[in-house]
Write a protein that binds this DNA or RNA. Structure first.
Length: 274
DNA sequence: CGTAGACCCTGCGCGC
DNA sequence: TGCGCGCAGGGTCTAC
């Protein structure tokens, strides 16, 4: 479900409702996520703490708590994090929940269980194995074509896989990598060794542009993405190539093609993207 | 060392 | 109507 824009939309939607509230207790109903939830540790590190702010690193949502603790939430492919009255009946696959002093419940639902949920001392965040290797934030200063080009030196392989490599740049997943490549006019299977400086610049601009526009439109809702209040996004109507196999390219009307790259579908216009 | 592919898990829509 | 298949927005691990 979620790439960087969806997590950022979630962060912005939850922050005004959560900041100042207090986690009274957590409840884990099924600990079997990608990494098992450490129920007791999670409870110990979150219980009784006020929520100070919400942050984001790549596709990770960071809930900063008083006393130097951070709750880390990753939604995987199918995760959802929503705020409901505490007495709201359990949803299927609601594996964990946080009960707040305000009488609400922050619930974590994840049918496919590819998500992550853990808490740690905030000072350990940057050294944590989940974060230590992460690359640049594409919407922050420092992201540029020159940076991408430098990261690609000595590498080969298709540019789409490179864009989705979180050790290079975080946040672009299968949808937005395809969209950014369309916008930049670059074929997703082109080797990173065969891209010149002007095209790297255009690609960096395209990545940042696509992501920030998607945030502005509330993210992309294909099946079930919703922000913390249950609102859908509408960037899906702006998708140029993703999911449009056989339909006409918006620029040249050539049918959009689909290819499989590292087990993921990728979509592109064979005429506009070279 | 980098890269390609398998794999983790559940639900949904489609064609038969 | 029911069933099997392919597919799905994440990341990690292994074999080369």
């Amino acid at each position: 479900m979620p790439e960087l824009p969806e997590i950022e939309v979630l962060r912005r939607s939850l922050e005004p409702h959560l900041v100042g509230d207090r986690i009274e207790r957590s409840e884990v109903r099924d600990h079997r996520l990608r990494e098992p939830i450490r129920t007791r540790e999670l409870a110990r590190r979150t219980a009784g703490r006020r929520i100070e702010s919400l942050g984001r690193r790549g596709k990770y949502l960071l809930v900063h708590l008083e006393g130097g603790r951070t709750l880390v939430v990753h939604l995987g492919m199918s995760g959802r994090l929503t705020l409901v009255p505490a007495e709201t009946p359990l949803e299927p696959h609601e594996h964990a929940a946080f009960f707040l002093a305000s009488g609400r419940r922050l619930r974590f639902r994840d049918p496919r269980r590819f998500g992550l949920l853990f808490a740690l001392p905030t000072e350990d965040l940057l050294d944590d194995p989940h974060f230590a290797h992460l690359g640049v934030e594409p919407l922050e200063p420092g992201f540029s074509g020159a940076l991408l080009q430098a990261a690609a030196r000595g590498r080969r392989g298709p540019v789409k896989a490179f864009l989705m490599d979180a050790t290079v740049v975080v946040g672009a997943g299968n949808i937005y990598a395809a969209e950014a490549l369309f916008r930049a006019g670059i074929h997703p299977l082109r080797s990173v060794a065969r891209i010149a400086a002007p095209r790297w610049n255009r690609l960096a601009e395209s990545v940042a542009g696509v992501l920030s526009e998607a945030i502005g439109q509330g993210g992309t809702t294909l099946n079930d993405f919703a922000d913390g209040e249950g609102n859908s996004g509408y960037f899906q109507v702006s998708l140029s190539v993703y999911g449009r196999e056989g339909e006409g390219c918006l620029h040249c009307a050539t049918p959009v093609k689909r290819a499989v790259l590292s087990n993921r579908s990728t979509y592109y216009c064979p005429r506009c993207q070279r």
